[in-house]
Simulated assay, not measured.
Amino acid sequence: MELTEAKQKFIESWGKLGSEWGINRTMAQVHALLLISPEALTTEELMETLSISRGNANMTLRDLMGWGLIEKQHRAGERKEYFYADKDAWNIARQVAKERRKRELDPVLKVLDELSKVEGDLNDPEFKTFNKSINDINELAKNVDKTIDTMLKAEENWFWGSIFKIFR
């Protein structure tokens, strides 16, 4: 397989993976292109390479910057904006975990905390089942939150070393 074909395959695969994780396919494809580009790219270069509209490109770039996955760069004497993605996989994983936590886990934890305070008769099978399920899910969600917190604070080697010790 030649480099051009391999790059296209990576972009398509990253886009598919992104959509499986609930991220817009185009957003994942733009991120993929920036990941494998040695230099920062302009909006026009992204549009041409991925065959997307200016509106789609601008919205996607704004979203990627909002996620903290890309940066906008300016070059002296030029009016064009350039976009660059951090190539460090550990930084990317931590940033995605941080954003997903904020957008998905934090709101669920808030609701679960509220639901865990519902009062009722522990002899009522319906309440007992509800209460146990909510408390179990809440405990799991809080453990996931602690794991994400550890990941966000940890150095890569320490984190993976700790994880792999668990499975030995």
Rank of each mutant, 00 (worst) to 15 (best):
L35Y: 05
G55I: 10
D86R: 05
R25F: 03
K72F: 03
G18A: 02
I163E: 08
A154I: 07
F159K: 08
V96E: 01
P125L: 07
A76G: 00
K128H: 15
G68N: 03
T49A: 12
L64F: 09
P38R: 13
E114T: 15
S133R: 15
R101D: 09
G18N: 03
S162A: 12
R168D: 07
H31V: 00
W67H: 00
K7F: 09
K102R: 14
D124G: 07
S162Y: 11
F10Q: 05
W158T: 12
L34T: 04
E126N: 10
F164A: 04
K72M: 15
K132P: 00
I36T: 07
I92C: 00
L105M: 06
K142M: 12
I134E: 09
I11K: 02
G66K: 05
S13F: 03
N131Q: 14
M1H: 11
T26A: 01
K132G: 01
E81C: 08
T150M: 12
I70A: 06
L122Q: 12
T42G: 06
I11D: 05
F130S: 04
A141W: 09
K110Q: 14
F127P: 01
H74N: 08
D63A: 12
K117H: 10
K87N: 02
I36N: 03
I11N: 03
K72R: 15
S19P: 02
H31T: 02
T4R: 07
M27S: 01
F164S: 10
P125V: 02
A85Y: 00
T60L: 05
A40G: 02
E44V: 13
K153E: 14
R54K: 15
V111N: 13
T43N: 09
S133Q: 14
A28M: 06
Q73N: 06
A76Q: 11
F130I: 07
G120E: 11
S37K: 02
A57Q: 03
D88H: 06
F130T: 04
N56L: 08
G77K: 04
L69D: 01
I163S: 08
L140M: 14
K165P: 01
E114P: 09
K80C: 00
R25I: 00
L34Y: 08
N56S: 14
W67K: 02
N56M: 08
S37T: 00
E155N: 14
R79W: 11
S116P: 05
T49F: 12
T150I: 12
P107K: 06
E126A: 12
K72W: 01
D145A: 10
V118A: 13
R54L: 12
D88V: 02
R100H: 10
I11C: 04
E39T: 07
I148G: 07
E155S: 08
I163D: 01
N56H: 09
L33M: 10
I11F: 07
E126D: 11
R100Q: 13
I166K: 08
I23Y: 15
Q8L: 05
D121C: 10
L69R: 03
I148F: 11
R103N: 09
I166L: 11
K80V: 02
S53P: 07
I163N: 04
N56C: 07
A85S: 10
L152S: 09
K153D: 11
R54E: 13
K153I: 04
E39R: 07
L50K: 03
K16M: 09
D63M: 10
L41H: 04
Q29V: 00
D86T: 00
K7P: 01
A57I: 06
K102Y: 10
T147Q: 14
A89F: 09
E48S: 13
